[in-house]
Simulated scan of single mutants.
Amino acid sequence: MKKLLLPLIGLVALLAGAGGGYFLRPHSAAEAEPPPEETVVPPDYVKLNNQFVVPVLEKGRVVSMVILSLSLEVVPGTSERVYEIEPKLRDAFLQVLFDHSNAGGFRGSFTDGANLVLLRKALLEAAQAILTDKVSDVLIVEIVRQDS
């Protein structure tokens, strides 16, 4: 009996150690529970009421007109505030658009991606100067140039 007892105790200890190791092992990423989903609140989009009309000048004469429609990507719940201060936003945007026009931004291939990136960046900076962290992007919804 003593000869059987020692191997049996060894076998039980071996199985207990293997079982403990299995249950106490670190879990892999595939077995880990997924983290709880975070609620992502989508932004609000505010379309400004009227289009922007920007003259393109050459030698003091209007050679074309650029017409744009803009929308703002804002923090949810900010739409009413945007409409309250729209006159101030329009003034700031018109200054940016006139500067862009005077720098030649609406001549030639005015819808070139790099050209529009610069314009969007300048418009966003103007919007953030007024709305601080409430606005995250300025979207050019429509743009057209009418040559005379």
Rank of each mutant, 00 (worst) to 15 (best):
Lys2Ile: 15
Lys3Ala: 14
Leu4Met: 06
Leu6Ala: 12
Leu6His: 00
Pro7Thr: 11
Leu8Trp: 11
Ile9Leu: 15
Val12Thr: 14
Val12Leu: 15
Val12Gly: 05
Leu14Arg: 05
Ala16Lys: 05
Ala16Tyr: 01
Gly17Thr: 12
Gly20Trp: 13
Gly21His: 03
Phe23Ala: 06
His27Met: 10
Ser28Gln: 10
Glu31Gln: 13
Glu31Gly: 07
Ala32Asn: 02
Ala32Thr: 10
Ala32Arg: 14
Pro35Thr: 03
Pro36Phe: 02
Glu37Cys: 00
Val40Cys: 01
Val41Arg: 12
Pro42Gly: 02
Pro43Val: 08
Pro43Ala: 12
Asp44Thr: 07
Asp44His: 05
Tyr45Met: 06
Val46Glu: 03
Val46Phe: 02
Asn49Gly: 07
Gln51Arg: 11
Gln51Asp: 11
Pro55Trp: 05
Pro55Phe: 08
Val56Asn: 10
Leu57Thr: 08
Lys59Ala: 15
Val62Tyr: 03
Val63His: 02
Val63Asp: 01
Ser64Cys: 11
Ser64Met: 04
Val66Lys: 04
Leu68Gly: 05
Ser69Cys: 00
Ser71Cys: 07
Leu72Trp: 02
Leu72Gly: 04
Val75His: 04
Val75Thr: 15
Pro76Asn: 07
Thr78Met: 10
Glu80Phe: 09
Tyr83Met: 13
Lys88Gln: 10
Leu89Phe: 04
Leu89Trp: 05
Leu89Glu: 04
Arg90Cys: 06
Leu94Val: 09
Gln95Asn: 11
Val96Phe: 09
Leu97Lys: 04
Asp99Arg: 15
His100Lys: 10
His100Leu: 03
Ser101Gly: 04
Gly104Glu: 12
Gly105Arg: 02
Gly108Leu: 03
Phe110Arg: 03
Thr111Phe: 06
Ala114Arg: 13
Asn115Ile: 08
Asn115Gln: 13
Asn115Gly: 07
Leu116Ser: 03
Leu116Gly: 06
Leu119Met: 09
Leu123Glu: 01
Leu124Ser: 08
Ala126Ser: 11
Ala126Thr: 05
Ile130Pro: 01
Asp133Leu: 01
Lys134Arg: 14
Ser136Thr: 12
Ser136Ile: 08
Asp137Cys: 00
Val138Glu: 07
Ile140Asn: 05
Glu142Pro: 03
Ile143Glu: 02
Arg145Asn: 04
Ser148Phe: 13
